[in-house]
């Protein structure tokens, strides 16, 4: 079980985050399904922000 958790910026749910999470990683809230990005990880505290809206040149 991961020791890391964060708060969903959309619905305030507690989001469990993998221990090997990276800054800039996309996370999906298990409660409201909104997409978030890891903004920072400091002292075991993960901060999430809403994922940016898809832009015209995004893709693979």
């Amino acid at each position: 079980m991961s020791k890391l958790s964060a708060v969903c910026p959309t619905c305030d749910a507690i989001v469990v985050v993998d221990d090997n999470v990276e800054v800039s990683e996309i996370i999906v809230c298990q409660e409201c399904r909104s997409r978030m990005v890891v903004e920072k990880i400091e002292n075991g505290i993960v901060t999430l922000v809403k994922a940016p809206v898809v832009e015209e040149d995004w893709g693979e």
Binding site: N20, E22, V23, S24, E25, I26, V37, A51, P52
Partner: peptide, 13 residues
């Protein structure tokens, strides 16, 4: 060199 990190980048890591 990345921007948002997708599951794909995590698999590479």
């Amino acid at each position: 060199f990345h921007s948002t990190i997708r599951t794909d980048e995590k698999l590479i890591l």
